[in-house]
Write a protein that binds this DNA or RNA. Structure first.
Lengths: 151, 151
DNA sequence: TCCCTATCGATGCAATTGCATCTATATGGA
DNA sequence: TCCATATAGATGCAATTGCATCGATAGGGA
């Protein structure tokens, strides 16, 4: 079995992608910590739940949306619930499952996190690339997704 | 104090960037694990040390190159040494420090990891974007680096 | 020379994460 | 109906990571 070898351009782009994204995420996490706010993962979940509305979401639906393992979601939801940011409701037609809904304080926390998170995005992306470049970037990245989806 | 708000384009590009890079890295880690190989961080360190040549590197020089915390480097080097992949040498003009050099088995391990890692890069980047697009991507990402550097 | 401070690297301890497995309910076929 | 298998979610335990701090040497003034 012969392994493929990546082109120099592919290697360079890969290295940039991995380094830059790690830096961006790390600095954003630092900013959140510095403001006494929880990690980005909390925002991701609160965001998904806010978008989902009153109906809420099942935990398993969160797995792919926030790119977390099943046990990661389970434990994160337990913490969010302990902090009163979400509530778990039994679901009528499936005794195994539950529905998770964001609470008022959950929405408030989401807002507070976004104040810092959004500013980081503006600083680190919006201020550095034009709208056109941002679109180009998003489009190129879109082609790297798995599974490949339309743009 | 008024916080900045990011543009929709900035948000979209950010989301893509973070998601895509996480997916890519995770799948690569999975491929390594599936082949009984150590994590990507090991490759990063072995790669830097291989590039550094006979002179080796001081641990603190690795910190910024591999984007690891000081204690992360310390512990990773301890494991690499325990596995015989690197060796630590006292450094003459600084009694606090040491020089770390890659060993022959370290180079061999690097090769084995690259066989899988390189194939992942080829599959996930090289096969999906043209050389020109890869250059564009790398250039756009380069403008997001901190501190900003030339391209 | 003697401190005072800075830097290098390691580590104890707590928190988090990953892996494997568990319980409970659901589903589908004999 | 009964059983075998699949799915939802939780969790015990081990490994990893983060935080704070430590011990040791360097360097730089007074």
């Amino acid at each position: 079995m012969t392994k493929k070898s990546p082109s120099p351009e592919a290697i360079a782009a890969w290295a940039r992608l991995v380094r830059v994204s790690r830096q961006l995420v790390e600095r954003t996490e630092d900013a959140l910590k510095a403001n006494g706010l929880p990690p980005l993962a909390w925002y991701d979940v609160l965001h998904e739940l806010a978008e989902a509305g009153e109906g809420g979401l099942r935990p398993f639906e969160l797995i792919d949306r926030v790119l977390l393992a099943q046990y990661g979601v389970s434990r994160l939801l337990a913490r969010l619930e302990a902090d009163g940011l979400v509530e778990k409701l039994p679901v009528s037609d499936d005794g195994r499952g539950q529905t998770v809904r964001i609470t008022a304080s959950g929405r408030e926390m989401r807002r507070r996190i976004w104040a810092v998170y959004g500013a980081c995005i503006a600083d680190r992306m919006g201020d550095r690339l034009s709208a056109q470049d941002l679109k180009t970037l998003a489009s190129l990245l879109g082609r790297l997704r798995d599974p490949p989806a339309s743009d």
